[in-house]
Write a protein that binds this DNA or RNA. Structure first.
Lengths: 267, 267
DNA sequence: TTGCTCCTCACGTCACGTGAGGTGGC
DNA sequence: TTGCTCCTCACGTCACGTGAGGTGGC
């Protein structure tokens, strides 16, 4: 026979837990001193404790453990309980995997934005772009519609998105409304979705500038890009690209002063 | 402006939850009637509620949400919180996957045992056995040592175990102690482990009988098998196999009266 | 006397849910 | 008057942990 302290050390269950299990009738000491109320445990209790610990490790609650202990004396009878628990655990796992995906998406986005805002002084520069696989939805409307379309794309391509969203502008001029826009996501794997164009966007040489601040002031950055192109004697090509490096976040809207948009004009 | 009921319907947060968030300072109504203490919410609150809901979906507790809301106004600043949460969630997933594996193992074992005990009337019968890939540890000792060796094998081959554990007996006679035993598990995939023999156990024709009850009475079942073999004029071959269809369970010891052991003697 | 072990309350944690009991406007 | 909405306590859930305050034997 063991005192509660010894028994706690043997079983790895805390004294507080043991008192609780006693109170709930889950693990009753083999003897209790009527004078002092001291609890005394025996080797049969050790076996019970092993079972309880095992069930607790499998995420069973004390009430469930009590039920199992009452109804079951053989592993056979436990199968129904376990099937139920299996469903619970599977649900938890699925949910946690979703959370992990969401967290990763946000972290990746934000890290990209932080790096972009540190690494560059927002000068006009020339770049070579690789071809990329994209999914895009083309429509006539205004810039602010793009959030809606990014949302749509996100639903269909959530798992295979592979970089920041961007818009393609097919108009030669700036149009406030009725503009010809394609909202796109780089993706890892092609997939057929109704109303979405999945294709490879060709690479090439371009002139690029990162615009800092609200979208409303992007005109000034565009002017810089276009005057640079003129100066160098390049021929700008449509569509132009606007990559959303940092816009309103998934969680917070953030301060528009800190939004980052990269303008790319192919030449 | 909305009353708490309207706001609850808009945001999908319960009235009780909204009152709690108010109390905790996480989501404070834009106005409160000094007379009636009625809470009134506005569109800014709707945006706050969206953020809170999103964070709650990502398994953040209310205290963490309060911290984030205090410290953060841009998704950038949230990365540290999210990295931490990512570790938490990953740990949960790993743990849940382990639980799922454990549950599946027990369920599979018990279902097998239930089927075995229903499908047969425990008659001596002849069977053809397929060759199987096994991992085994051979030792000299007594039957009751095998639990220890099954435990060892379980640790090394936990992920690839593929059926019930069994013992091979290399002695022609029954020995209480100092018997030549190999404790084995069928496995799905070979793996090199120190002190463990991994190999294919050949198939063939055998005489089989399921023994019901404690191991101590298995001698009688053996006699039945051997007299059947003699009757038929077969030549028994070593080692004989004893498959533990149902023994002491992972959780409960169960009643030895219900233990099932299949004896197989190759001929 | 000190240190150790045991005991019994009672309260805290977490994110609410569930009443009870009452108010005010339609 | 009835039904609806809002309010404030206060208590329950879950599996313990954390004291407080006291006992008994070495």
């Amino acid at each position: 026979v063991y005192t509660i302290g010894e028994f706690s050390r043997i079983t790895g269950l805390s004294i507080k837990a043991l008192r609780l299990y006693h109170e709930k009738g889950i693990l009753v000491p083999s003897a209790i001193d009527t004078e002092s109320n001291y609890r005394y445990y025996d080797s049969h209790n050790v076996e019970q404790a092993r079972i309880i610990t095992h069930l607790r490790d499998l995420q069973f609650g004390l009430v469930e453990i009590a039920d199992i202990l009452d109804d079951v004396e053989d592993d056979c009878d436990v199968v129904a309980f376990f099937e139920k628990k299996k469903i619970e655990i599977s649900t938890q796992i699925r949910n946690n995997l979703r959370i992990l995906r969401d967290l990763n998406t946000i972290i990746k986005n934000e890290k990209g934005a932080i790096m972009a805002s540190q690494s560059t002084e927002f000068q006009v520069e020339e770049k070579d772009l690789e071809p990329i696989l994209i999914a895009g939805i083309r429509y006539k409307g205004k810039y602010s519609d793009c959030g809606k379309y990014f949302g749509k794309l996100g639903k269909s391509f959530g798992g295979v998105m592979n970089g920041n969203p961007f818009n393609l502008y097919y108009d030669g001029e700036v149009k406030e409304t009725d503009a010809d826009i394609e909202s796109c996501f780089p993706i890892r794997k092609a997939k057929d979705v109704e109303g979405v164009s999945v294709r490879e966007l060709p690479g090439g040489h371009c002139v690029s500038l990162i615009h800092k601040g609200s979208y409303e002031t992007i005109g000034r950055s565009y002017e810089k890009v276009l005057s640079y192109i003129k100066e160098k004697g390049y021929t700008p090509q449509l569509p132009s690209r606007e990559i959303c490096i940092k816009g309103p976040g998934m969680i917070f809207k953030g301060n528009p002063e800190n939004y980052l948009t990269e303008i790319q004009v192919m030449i």
